[in-house]
């Protein structure tokens, strides 16, 4: 069984089926979820991360049913995410953004924080070290004290990924990580995704940049109108007539 299993997921918004009976598994490695605009990709993500509840179907993660859990509980189970429109804490420092991502793993209570008990101080020191390490991992070393709002667009994407990694997830879910990045930033991102995978973290991502998708993903799942139309390795997907038709029919977007 794969790390993440979606089984018959359906979600309707005001009578329109955004996601309709979608099932697929996410094994270890890097999986891409692709499809034309409005195919329901982000809705699938939100169903996985608990931001919306499915009308029907189940989400199983590491052999446990996590359907309908609150988002923060799903993070604690080991799934962390980024957002399509980057959502950082603009008033916090870069490092504090990362530390906020580590919150689900922290234990210190109010009293321990007020009394600065040794365990709390140790925990805080460790999480800071880990946070700085994550910043270095995504290439933001030395930026920890800057306000998050002062970062450039590409740096924000990477900070959001660092925040997700700080939760020590087994699976990260990246919603259009290459959105708004230039060519060299996208190349850096490919490297980053590979290094995440090399840490043993499974990656599921939505992306429109087909060059990027074909380069980093080992498996692809294709959605159209809320329905899964294909699934498999990139080479097979590239030649799948249904996929080609979906892309040509929906827009002038080129799947290859």
């Amino acid at each position: 069984m794969s790390l993440l299993e979606l089984q018959g997921l359906s979600k309707r918004f005001g009578g329109v089926a955004a996601v309709d009976g979608v099932s697929f598994g996410v094994p270890d490695g890097v999986t891409g979820l692709i499809g034309p605009n409005g195919a329901g990709k982000t809705t699938v993500f939100n169903l996985i991360t608990g931001n919306i509840r499915p009308d029907r179907g189940t989400v199983t993660f590491a052999d446990t049913d996590i359907t309908g859990l609150a988002p923060h509980r799903i993070v604690a189970r080991g799934i962390a995410r980024t957002f399509q429109a980057i959502r950082l804490f603009g008033g916090l420092s870069v490092l504090d953004n990362v530390l906020a991502g580590a919150d689900a793993g922290l234990r210190a209570g109010l009293l321990a924080s007020v009394l600065r008990l040794p365990a709390q101080r140790r925990e805080e020191r460790d999480v800071r070290e880990a946070g700085l390490a994550e910043l270095e991992f995504v290439g933001l070393a030395g930026k920890g004290a800057a306000p998050a709002a002062s970062l450039a667009h590409g740096e924000r994407r990477r900070l959001e990924i660092a925040r997700a990694l700080a939760a020590r997830p087994r699976l990260v879910v990246l919603d259009e990580p290459a959105g708004g990045l230039n060519e060299s930033e996208t190349a850096d991102l490919s490297g980053l995704v590979r290094r995440i995978r090399a840490r043993g973290v499974t990656v599921l991502l939505i992306e429109h940049d087909m060059g990027f998708v074909m380069e980093v993903c080992e498996r692809l799942v294709v959605l159209e109108h809320g329905v899964k139309i294909a699934e498999g390795p990139p080479e097979a997907i590239r030649r799948d007539p249904r996929v080609i038709e979906a892309y040509l029919g929906a827009a002038e977007g080129d799947p290859a």
Partner: peptide, 8 residues
């Protein structure tokens, strides 16, 4: 985003 980062 706070909820999505694991904060209750």
């Amino acid at each position: 985003a706070a909820e999505g980062s694991g904060i209750d």
